Amino acid sequence: MKVQDKSSTDAKATNSDLEKQEQDPPCPPCAETAQARLSAFSALGFINRFLALWIFLAMLVGILLGNFVDDVEPALQKGKFVNVSVPIAIGLLVMMYPILCKVQYEKLHVVFKSREIWVQMGFSIIINWIVAPLVMAWADCSQLGLAWAFLPDKQGLREGLILVGIARCIAMVLIWNNLAGGNGDYCAILVAINSLLQIVLFAPISLLFIRVFNPHSHSAIDISYSTVATSVGVFLGIPLGAAILTRLVLLRLLGPDRYKSYFLRFAAPWSLIGLLFTILVLFASQGKQVVDQIVSVVRVAAPLIVYFALIFFLTLLVARRMGFRYGYAVTQSFTAASNNFELAIAVAVAAYGPQSDQALAATVGPLIEVPVLLGLVYGVKWFAKRRNWKE
């Protein structure tokens, strides 16, 4: 009897597993991920594990250089590329390229055969391109946006925050999602989609909120559609196009295994190097301004903290209520909550100048985002474990 019962139980378990495989769509093959879902943090290397520390140190070194080294600021501003200093431009391009090389563009057609992916994509577009920008930037008569609520008297800082709120994250979100055990393949899909959407949507949406929904603006002439569109096209379009071309060519020459084990292993650290270099140069260029305007930095930090937490938990709550699995819900939440501060910085510097309040507000973005999003990683993993929320 015991043997029969055990056999019957095993048969039921096997049938249940087969039914589950038939019901659940396969994970979309759009990015290489190797870490286990809920043990990603321990699997990270030493550099990525202390990412917040490296960014803070880069900021600190930049501020010290800007305040105690003579002529460092003018030296860093020599030479312009699309109205951005050459060192910053190089850092931005180097930072974007390796991340985008990980996306499996050649298999996107397989992904879009899944109905669940279309539902997830629709939800993500609504949250990222309608809800999140409105939460940060909506003004009208009520001025409900966080940028207006916290900075009604600081137009320049407010406009910098609006640029941050509109820029959808395409790089750092892969790190947060990996740490929290989200769906890495689906996250890579959103990176590719948001990269393409930002090329098309960032310029008109930013102009809409800064010029049309900004009734008290006195510097609307400083920002134009051509300036924003050019910055987006250069600092996002160039690395995206280069990444697609690199992947398609090298996959043919090297094959998938060698592409991953050789090329991606070599290219991956350059993303972090580009990020730290860009932050160091930005803070070196604005070191005196950051120290002189420490109150402004604190005022910018407050709405950013509220924004990251509010958007994250709002998205997570709605996704859970809609019955999304843990991996998808976490990916949606981190994609919505994190922002492409690299692009916001590039546009702010190109449109307003490196010494502007807009550039200062955009530069404060990574200082606040890194510790807040890292805290949300621990928070969502604790919540999932407590509620037994599994994939």
Rank of each mutant, 00 (worst) to 15 (best):
D5H: 12
K6H: 13
K20H: 13
A36K: 08
L44M: 12
N48P: 03
N48C: 04
R49A: 05
L51I: 03
I55P: 05
A58Y: 07
V69S: 12
A75N: 02
G79F: 04
L93S: 07
E116H: 12
S124G: 02
W138H: 01
A139R: 05
W148T: 02
Q155F: 08
V164D: 11
A167L: 04
N183M: 10
C187Q: 13
V191R: 11
L196S: 05
L197M: 13
Q198E: 05
A203R: 01
I205D: 01
I221S: 14
V228A: 03
G233E: 11
A242M: 05
A243W: 10
L248C: 08
L248T: 09
G255P: 03
D257S: 10
R258S: 07
W270P: 02
S271C: 11
S271Q: 05
L275P: 04
L276K: 01
F283I: 03
F283K: 05
G287Y: 06
Q289W: 02
V298N: 02
A301S: 15
P303L: 10
L304P: 15
I305K: 15
Y307G: 00
F308R: 04
L314G: 11
L314E: 03
L316K: 11
G323R: 08
F324L: 09
Y326H: 09
Y328V: 04
S333R: 11
T335N: 14
I345Y: 08
V349T: 08
T363L: 14
G365A: 15
G365H: 10
P366T: 04
L376C: 06
K385G: 12
